[in-house]
Amino acid sequence: MDWLGPEEWHAVALSLKVSFWATLLSLPFGIWIAYILARKNFIGKQLLNGLVHLPLVLPPVVTGYLLLMGFGPRGPFGIALDQIGASIAFRWTGAALAAAIMGFPLMVRAIRLSIEAVDPKLEAAAATLGARKSMVFATVTLPLITPGLLTGTILGFAKAMGEFGATITFVSNIPGQTQTLPSAIYSFLQVPDGESAALRLVLISVAIAMTALLASEILARRLAKRVAGS
């Protein structure tokens, strides 16, 4: 990493940090929402499905603006968080929230498809043996959806790494604080002789994305073989 300057290195490290926490914190909610959408029928299901996938069709700037209105210094959630000293606007934690929201639809969709592919009769058979729903999910459903779970996690992480519009709208582009890889690339392209630094960050972005996708593909295939063999 000697060929990276301090500002470039910090942007890489911050992007990895933001993407890691965005993925980790959204994963439990992604599994829960995916299970509800795959297995439950209730009034408002389509509305919930639409809300989950809304960030995919909305301009990212609109999502960032809505986050700013809700979690900004004058937003209702922002005021409440500020009172307990947990403000997230214009901080890396806000970037993690924006990245989590933008990657959430991809995560939920992959996990939901995996759950729908599991035969409900297998879960019903475990339930007839006296297992609770939580135990059925942990011992039957979860092992079978592991490849999809891994795919959803990787997709969420990759989307978080590449998030730009919602992040820069919500937490701005502050070097050393909220400047992630995409924001740093944008900044370098706006200054003279910044193309070389931008190119280095582009190459790192491509390398991280390709590594994540290849790793998810390899691990998903191995896990799928194990599940099929069991």
Rank of each mutant, 00 (worst) to 15 (best):
F157L: 12
V62E: 05
G165T: 10
A99Q: 11
P76N: 09
V61T: 15
L144A: 12
Q190G: 10
L48Y: 08
L219A: 13
P73F: 12
M102S: 06
V202H: 02
A207H: 08
R221M: 06
K121V: 13
V136G: 05
D2H: 05
L189H: 02
L97Q: 08
P182I: 00
S26A: 15
S196K: 06
T178G: 01
M107C: 07
R112V: 12
A207S: 15
A166P: 02
L24W: 06
P76Y: 03
R226C: 04
S87E: 11
L155Q: 10
I115H: 07
L25W: 06
L203M: 15
P59G: 10
W3D: 14
V227P: 02
A197W: 04
S196D: 12
K159C: 12
A89G: 01
N41V: 13
S172Q: 12
P192K: 05
T153F: 09
N173E: 06
G162D: 10
D193M: 11
A125C: 11
I204Q: 01
L129Y: 06
F164L: 13
V227K: 04
K45I: 11
P76E: 09
V136K: 07
Y35E: 09
S172K: 09
S172D: 14
P55S: 10
I31W: 03
D2R: 11
A34H: 03
S15K: 10
W32E: 01
P105M: 09
A131Y: 08
D82G: 15
S114P: 05
G162S: 09
G44R: 07
F29M: 14
P120G: 08
L189P: 01
G78H: 03
A126S: 13
L97G: 05
R112L: 14
A215E: 01
T211C: 12
G229I: 01
L4T: 05
L48E: 07
G70P: 00
F170T: 00
A86W: 15
A220L: 03
I154S: 14
P105H: 11
T151V: 13
A212I: 15
R39I: 03
L149G: 14
T23F: 00
V202M: 14
L16W: 07
A13S: 11
V108Y: 10
G75R: 06
G72V: 03
M161Y: 10
S205V: 02
V12G: 01
A212W: 11
L129K: 08
F137C: 05
P192W: 03
L201M: 09
L149C: 12
S87P: 01
A138I: 09
E195S: 04
L203T: 10
L81S: 06
F188G: 04
L155K: 07
L58D: 03
R112F: 13
F29A: 14
T153G: 06
I154H: 01
S114D: 08
A11L: 02
G72T: 03
